[in-house]
Nucleic acid binder design. Sequence first.
DNA 1: TGGTTTCATAAAGGTGCCTCCTTGTTTGCA
DNA 2: TGCAAACAAGGAGGCACCTTTATGAAACCA
Lengths: 140, 140
Amino acid sequence: MKPRHGHISESCRPISEVLSRIGDKWTSLIITRLSQQPMRFNELKRNVHGISQKVLTASLRALERDGFVERTVFPTTPPTVEYRLTPFGEELAEPLTALTRFALTNAARMDAARAAYDTKHGEPMPDAAPKYKPQQLRLN
Amino acid sequence: MKPRHGHISESCRPISEVLSRIGDKWTSLIITRLSQQPMRFNELKRNVHGISQKVLTASLRALERDGFVERTVFPTTPPTVEYRLTPFGEELAEPLTALTRFALTNAARMDAARAAYDTKHGEPMPDAAPKYKPQQLRLN
DNA sequence: TGGTTTCATAAAGGTGCCTCCTTGTTTGCA
DNA sequence: TGCAAACAAGGAGGCACCTTTATGAAACCA
């Protein structure tokens, strides 16, 4: 199999494709939430701020299909659906909760870095990027 | 500040936005590579399979701006540019290398889960999804 | 009767990321 | 002279992801 999109993982699926699945922001947020406790659809929707019903449905479907989440339908009226991490999902939760914690605790630091960078190089504007010139390559 | 897109991190930047930056597949691959050793542009391009020159340039620029990577230009002819992780970048490398390792070691397991799911529910095709009906909600 | 709950889905339109191809400049080498 | 190396950037077009709005069905309640 030709390594078009990345290192060949054990299944020949490009590593970049796997990473784009598990590194996805909604995946991180959903998995991190479910690692705390199983939840129903609307609970998740309220807890994962900013996610739409549609995106939540699609994300949960994908997570179920990948084997990270199991879905239980209860015969209530109307039916209620519970989502819970599988053991596989709990394994994924480990690096993801670490990543989410990093995001929570380091956003200000990123902001400061961006401000410093912009002060030095100018804001990333359409006309602010000079043309590449070897002798004038962006010198620090 | 209104929490439109996620939990409010300490900088008021939505957590989902921070996660979409640091969880990005190219970020993962680049940071993981640089955590092994500093690299020049073309070294990185060869090592991060599947990335285009353009995407690599943009990704490195963003990583530099966020404070994770530092860029050193050497006055060779033509100029060569070296990228290395900052201490902040090394902190991010920890959860990211764990995530990348997970991706490398669990792709086959995801494939197996998908195959099992599709066997049970049918392949995700445009016409394979039945209309929502509470009494017939996807029962497992 | 109308409204609500629950969760999956459809359609239309917008945006961002990415691919592919190209340009640019200086130096060194065949 | 032509080509290669090095690395940043531009443009056109395609595709995936997302937002917004709406639909659907059974039961319950005012």
